[in-house]
Design a protein around this nucleic acid. Structure first.
Lengths: 202, 202
DNA sequence: ATTTTTCTTGCAGAGTGTGTAAACTTACGC
DNA sequence: GCGTAAGTTTACACACTCTGCAAGAAAAAT
């Protein structure tokens, strides 16, 4: 992976990953999430205000909302755009089974952080309210995926496939389903879908 | 169906269905939902405030929140308690296949209104934000159902079954899946689950 | 008729989230 | 370098959501 650094000048191209701006944005995003995560883990969601998070992260209240739409989203560290343009293109030009490619698409969400999913599980376990927030976010994610899926297969089939894949995803996110940490891989999702299918036809 | 009216005195037992209090509560709940539904359908969610709904429904702002936790919930007419004690008991003492009984449980949610699901679909179609609110509500519903399911079948099987049933339920609520109006019957849910299973094993 | 319980309402207040415009920082061309 | 363009942060003001509390109104129980 090239870092897009210009070999002649040593400067970065505008707003590409690696530019000063992008690095700073990633940094403040991370600062906000970290602050929210730790505060909520300690005090509980209801006893943390956005203002608290902001002072801890050393940003203004207004900046907070430039990065996250809500306190819950910040605590969970939910990405603003769940499907990157790159993932979308790869999916649209995919050749495999729809379900398999959907699993691939879904499992490639951009996290700031490798232990992102781990943090989500921890918080959800101690703050069930956050599960609702997570599902709300997932709803937007799902909408986008449906749009993409309908460009590969039309109508009902697409919706059914998406429903299955998200059922599997939620099972993985829901703590208690499996003790495993870390994000769900495409293979694991595919396996869970097989399980779902077998349960349906008992 | 007995109305619980006391044959001697002609009065109603306290707080049972048919008592004056219960009727009035149902009435104001309905008034609030109707007002919210129509206003949101006309102006869109963002251009309706809780205060607007309250003046239309002729209740105080404070009363609004005694019936619905949010503007979106009122517009959609989402019931406060999704699973009645009665449904829960019937499910727990059920004898059929877990999946089938879950379909029965899920499809028996208490609606104030026969065309409740129809209204939900209409609103969601013009206000995608409401889909998120719906999923959030569904999240709480799901939690309760998981509790119940785990009392009939333990651990993973219960979770898998619930995931399937809710996948089907969401498909039905989501406009665009099927043109049919009205609430989803247990049989329709069961059929959708079969479809899901067939999509999984292509 | 009186007491008790439940529901409604008004008020006050903390907290969330948005529009706007000014200050500031980074990027780019020269 | 240097000046302009573009993007980001910040303060301020403001509408709105939602909750707690206590007094009043309505219904049920005695």
């Amino acid at each position: 992976m090239s870092t897009a650094r210009d070999a002649m000048t040593g400067t970065f191209a505008a707003d590409e990953p690696g530019s000063l701006r992008e690095r700073k944005k990633k940094q403040t995003r991370r600062a906000i999430h970290d602050a929210a995560y730790h505060l909520v883990a300690e005090r509980g969601l209801a006893h943390v205000t956005v203002a608290d998070v902001c002072t801890t992260a050393a940003v203004s209240d207004r900046t907070f909302f430039n990065y996250f739409p809500s306190k819950a989203a910040a605590a969970l560290g939910l990405p603003g755009t769940a499907v990157t343009e790159e993932s979308a293109q790869r999916f649209l030009s995919g050749t495999g089974e729809l379900i398999d490619d959907l699993c691939e698409l879904i499992s490639s969400l951009p996290s700031d952080d490798e232990d992102g999913v781990q943090r989500i599980r921890e918080l959800v376990k101690i703050e069930p309210h956050l599960l609702a927030a997570l599902h709300q976010w997932t709803s937007g994610f799902r909408q986008r995926v449906i749009e993409l899926a309908e460009q590969r297969s039309s109508g009902q089939t697409a919706r059914l496939a998406v429903a299955l894949v998200f059922a599997a995803l939620i099972l993985h996110a829901d703590s208690g389903y499996t003790g495993r940490a870390g994000r769900a891989s495409a293979a694991e999702l595919r396996r869970t879908i097989s399980l779902l299918s077998s349960v349906a036809t008992d």
